[in-house]
């Protein structure tokens, strides 16, 4: 039993990511997508929180959404995996539940 949490809002606009990280259990996966990808970048105010979260949950960011926003996949916080759409599907299949934090 594990959950894939998806977050699609920037943490600088909404509390969804914070709330997601507060409720994700050890071993769960969290995928940042759409506007939430801005949270994945090293050097933002969120970076320490994500680095910390990476100790208990698996963190991923959707590459196409980074690219669309001109964000370099090489510059994400250490411990965050960059996935494409196939990777997204794999994550959904690997976990027993998907929880979308809107």
């Amino acid at each position: 039993m594990s959950t894939l949490h998806t977050v699609n809002k920037s943490p600088f606009e909404r509390s969804s990511l914070q709330s997601c990280l507060d409720h994700a259990l050890e071993g769960d996966s969290v995928l940042l997508m759409e506007d939430a990808v801005v949270a994945a970048m090293a050097g933002t105010a969120m970076a320490p929180k994500l680095a910390d979260a990476a100790n208990s949950v698996k963190l991923f960011v959707l590459g196409p959404d980074l690219k669309a926003r001109g964000l370099d996949a090489a510059g994400v916080v250490a411990g965050i995996g960059v996935v494409d759409y196939d990777g997204f599907v794999d994550l959904a299949a690997e976990n027993s539940t998907v929880q979308a934090w809107l």
Binding site: M1, T3, L25, T97, Q99, W101
Partner: peptide, 14 residues
């Protein structure tokens, strides 16, 4: 709450 969510088969968040 986090634990309870983890026990669910289906979670709808909005």
């Amino acid at each position: 709450m986090a634990k309870l969510m983890g026990e669910m088969d289906v979670v709808m968040t909005a």
